[in-house]
Simulated scan of single mutants.
Amino acid sequence: MTTIFKDGAFVEEDWVRADPETGAALDGDALVPLSMFLVEPETYLARGGRTAVLIEAGDDSADVLPFLDRLALVAVDFPSFADGRGFSAARILREQAGYKGDIRATGKYILDQVPLAMRCGVSSFEISKPEVLKALKAGEWPEVTKYLQPVGTVEEIPEGTRPWARRSLRDIPVAAE
Rank of each mutant, 00 (worst) to 15 (best):
D102W: 08
S61G: 13
P130R: 05
V74L: 13
K146W: 06
S88H: 05
D59R: 01
F81L: 12
D69E: 14
G160N: 14
R91L: 06
Q96A: 15
P66Q: 13
E131D: 13
L116T: 12
C120D: 08
G101E: 03
P79E: 05
V132S: 04
A75V: 11
A117Y: 08
R104W: 06
L71G: 06
R104P: 01
A75F: 07
K100L: 06
D63F: 02
F125T: 06
D63H: 03
L148K: 15
P150T: 11
L148E: 14
W164K: 02
D102E: 15
A62I: 02
V114G: 08
G107Q: 07
F67C: 08
E140F: 02
E131T: 02
E140G: 00
Y109S: 11
K137A: 13
S123G: 12
P158S: 11
L111Q: 06
L136F: 08
T161F: 09
R94V: 04
A89R: 02
P142T: 07
G84D: 01
F67K: 02
T106D: 15
M118Q: 15
F87A: 03
W141F: 15
A105L: 05
E143S: 10
P66S: 14
E95H: 02
Q96T: 13
A57I: 02
T145Y: 13
I157K: 14
I92V: 14
A97I: 06
S88V: 04
T161N: 14
F81Y: 15
P163T: 10
V64L: 14
G101V: 12
D77S: 10
M118G: 15
E126A: 12
A117I: 01
G152I: 01
D112P: 15
S123L: 08
T153N: 13
S124R: 15
L148N: 15
D60W: 05
S80T: 09
G139E: 07
L93R: 10
F67G: 09
L71C: 08
E156W: 07
G98Y: 11
G58W: 03
